[in-house]
Write a protein that binds this DNA or RNA. Structure first.
Length: 449
RNA sequence: GGUCCGGUGGCAGAGUGGUGAUGCAGCGGACUGCAAAUCCGCGAAUGUGGGUUCGAUUCCCGCCCGGACCUCCA
């Protein structure tokens, strides 16, 4: 297989990926709303999209990857009010954490990381177009999108307007003409952040910022739009409605890539169950690369159960990969990604299949094949794995005192004082969490347990 | 209720209309002072009942079970 195939939520089918402009593939990922630490679900989303971006960069000369930051929303406003600070002060920390946490997972930064607050003029411009087109109306200081004005509305997420209205679970605001109408712009009271607009001082609704930022940075039409599958409705349905109605004749994103939600130890992650896994805390328990591999162990369109046991297995898999690389010290990455890894990835990002391919390469490398080791490095580049040397992976952070202790065991072994030798080995493991592996001729290696 | 997805060895998890990947765990052996790692080998699975077919885990239908979404959650 030499061509990338992706499942497209819009068509509910897999199809060969055909870029609008092969000289510049344009992709957009719905980024974080920055009011708190990122959780493990955010991480899956970003890691999967990262693999897609890395793969696209192997296939096309240029890829423009845009991932927004939503830095104005009601949750942010609530926190700002609670603390008596500006929304900038609320979002600064979460933005920094987000970059740190995603960096720890070896995800590449986006080429452009636009912020909602820096795109208010674009937001206002789109809303203006929608009003002029008859797709939006003003009511009591709000501007609302009229879903019945868009015959395409609901098609993306596979629902009808009747269903939407019948199924509405929330109280319908009195100023809405129809229950399904959603807010594009809402008024701000003096104590809330706001921007001047033709409809008075206010702030954007939830969905409009993605329409504005993708338009500004990628154009009316672009190639790929990603996100968690919980965003299919209403967020993406509404983005499509806004953008396509504001720019008649456009189709917005060509291909929609949605990852499934994940479970935590078999249960849905939710605050009420108390199993909400904050990425930062997971990273304290396991190396970032192990967390990343764990997130790639299931296909992105399958439910993934993020368990402690799975995390440990992910670490052991990496141990095996690095052991294979250790035998071929300093090997450079091969120029091309071997097909046993590339083919599964080209088939709708089959990361478990790619990992199986990586294990097959590890078998060969362990058997002495240096080319296989070089190919492992190339595969690691596209998967975002094997980012360090085996030495750092196994022994990084082991301090000198522990190393000296291990060294003291050499003499004991040489004198065949195995009681002492074993005592030191136990000590290393129990007190310092370090495993010692003996090699030939009195050599040994240390690794973190 | 509506829409959609899934049920594969002990666990995790792919693929496939024709003797079911891969990893972890387990078992036997080699190696080792003993371990660890590595190597060789072993056992072990397609929820259930029908249908289509020469042949179904794969396609179709029913049933059972689990999950997701249905207005601010990635």
């Amino acid at each position: 297989m030499t061509h990338l195939t992706l499942y497209n939520t819009r068509t509910r089918a897999k199809a060969p990926f055909v870029p609008l402009d092969p000289a510049n593939v344009r992709a957009y990922l719905c980024g974080p709303t920055v009011y708190d630490r990122a959780h493990i679900g955010n991480a899956r989303n970003v890691v999967i999209f990262d693999v897609l971006i890395r793969l696209l960069r192997r296939l096309y000369p240029k890829v423009t990857y845009v991932r927004n930051i939503t830095d104005v929303d009601d949750k942010i406003n609530v926190r700002a009010k609670e603390r008596g600070v500006s929304i900038e002060e609320v979002t600064a920390g979460p933005i920094r954490w987000y970059h740190e946490d995603m960096g720890a997972l070896y995800t590449l930064p986006p080429d452009i990381e636009p912020r909602a607050t820096a795109h208010i003029p674009e937001i206002i411009e789109i809303i203006n177009k929608l009003i002029l087109n008859g797709h939006a109306y003003e009511a009591e200081g709000h501007v609302l999108f009229s879903v019945s004005s868009d015959p395409e509305y609901g098609k993306f997420s596979g629902r009808t307007l009747d269903e939407l209205i019948a199924g509405a679970r929330v109280d319908v605001a009195p100023y809405k003409r129809e229950a399904g109408d959603f807010v594009l712009w809402k008024p701000s009271t003096p104590d809330l952040p706001g921007w001047e607009s033709p409809w008075g001082r206010g702030r954007p609704g939830w969905h409009i910022e993605c329409s504005a930022m993708s338009w500004r940075h990628l154009g009316e039409n672009f190639d790929i739009h990603g996100g968690g599958d919980d965003l299919i409705f209403p967020h993406h349905e509404n983005e499509i409605a806004q953008s396509c109605c504001a720019f008649p004749g456009s189709h917005f994103a060509n291909v929609w890539v949605h990852n499934r939600m994940l479970l935590v130890n078999g249960e849905k992650m939710s605050k009420s169950l108390g199993n909400f896994l904050v990425l930062h805390e997971v990273l304290e328990k396991a190396p970032g690369e192990a967390v990343r591999l764990m997130l790639m162990r299931a296909h992105y369109r399958q439910t993934l159960d993020f368990s402690d046991a799975g995390l440990m297995e992910a670490r052991k898999e990496l141990d095996r990969f690095y052991r294979a690389l250790e035998l071929h010290h300093g090997v450079e990455p091969a120029k091309t990604v071997p097909e046993e890894v590339m083919d599964p990835l080209l088939d709708d990002l089959n990361t478990p299949g790619a990992l199986a391919g990586l294990h097959a390469l590890a078998d060969q490398a362990i058997a002495g094949d240096a080319q296989a080791a070089a190919e492992m490095r190339a595969a690691g580049d596209v998967l975002g794995l094997l980012n360090m040397t085996p030495e750092v992976w196994f022994a990084g952070g082991i301090d000198d005192a522990v190393k000296a202790l291990a060294e003291s065991r050499v003499a004991a072994r040489k004198a065949k004082d195995f009681a002492e030798s074993d005592r030191i080995r136990d000590l290393l493991l129990k007190d310092h969490g370090v495993i010692i592996e003996d090699g030939l001729g009195g050599t040994y290696k240390l690794r973190k347990a």
